[in-house]
């Protein structure tokens, strides 16, 4: 469902992704690990179409379509969701109003009927409970004045609402306390349905205790340096990245 082939991308004059190849099946949950600055977030932005990230080589096919030819909002409506490493505040706009507009934009593009106020609120309540978010918090302005952990949880609420085909979670675990980590992981697991694919970017094994991945990829210097099963994450926890960096440099 996602085929990334020899992807090269740069920000300004700096090449960051340098020939990244990766495939994701429907329903597959892949963890992406790798040292700081190796290009994990860059990959998530390139896939979601953030302006300023220039693809110089390679292709990305998503559900049979040329993903790179689409605008950011088209990609989102086609089913690509990014849970941001640093979620953005949108003051003045309530979470509900924001999500209703987003959900209906996506539904419309997917040929589903738009939700009316009643249907929307029902869905909202279901998902809010699913990700264990407080009623008061869920109705506030989008991420406005939210704590770091609250923002992350709000990302997962949005993901649950938007029902994407591909979810990219960029360090969703960072900034979460132990209980929140558990609640968010449960929320994510509940969204694993054998169809939805996920790219889970993380630095820590402990997230992968909760969200057990099918595959683990290690990204070093803009390329996938190694791919393995969940045991690779445990190995990394023990050995760090230096051996992979050395291999990559060789």
């Amino acid at each position: 469902m996602l085929e990334i082939d020899n992807l090269h991308a740069r920000v300004g004059d700096t090449p960051i992704l340098k020939g990244l190849t990766l495939t994701l099946r429907p329903g597959e949950v892949a963890a992406i690990m790798g040292p700081n600055g190796s290009g994990k977030s860059t990959l998530s932005y390139v896939l979601s179409g953030r302006p300023g990230y220039e693809v110089t080589e390679g292709t990305v096919r998503f559900d049979g379509q040329d993903l790179l030819a689409m605008e950011a909002d088209e990609r989102a409506r086609a089913g690509v969701f990014l849970a941001f490493q640093y979620p953005v505040e949108v003051p003045g706009v309530s979470n509900k109003v924001f999500l209703k507009a987003a959900v209906n934009a996506c539904r419309k593009a997917r040929g589903q009927g738009e939700l009316d106020a009643y249907e929307f609120l029902k869905l909202f309540e279901d998902k809010r409970k699913l990700v264990g978010m407080g009623k008061e918090l869920a109705s506030r302005e989008v991420n406005s004045g939210f704590s770091g952990g609250e923002k992350k949880r709000n990302e997962i609420l949005q993901m649950a609402m938007l029902d994407p085909k591909l979810a990219i979670l960029d360090e969703t675990d960072s900034g979460l306390d132990i209980d929140a980590l558990k609640a968010v992981s449960e929320g994510v697991n509940a969204l694993r349905d054998g169809e939805r694919a996920m790219l889970v970017i993380t630095h820590y094994q402990r997230l992968l205790d909760h969200i057990v991945p099918d595959t683990v990829h290690v990204l070093v210097d803009g390329r996938i340096a190694r791919t393995g099963g969940r045991e690779l994450a445990l190995e990394l926890e023990e050995r760090g990245y230096d051996w992979l960096k050395a291999e990559a440099a060789a």
């Binding site: 979601s48 179409g49 953030r50 302006p51 605008e71 950011a72 909002d73 989102a76 409506r77 969701f81 990014l82 941001f84 979620p87 953005v88 505040e89 949108v90 924001f98 999500l99 507009a101 987003a102 959900v103 934009a105 996506c106 593009a109 949005q158 938007l162």
Partner: peptide, 14 residues
């Protein structure tokens, strides 16, 4: 900001 705009667009809004 561009960040806000991208964030909204990433959620499917034109």
């Amino acid at each position: 900001s561009d960040d806000q705009l991208f964030y909204c667009m990433q959620r499917g809004l034109a």
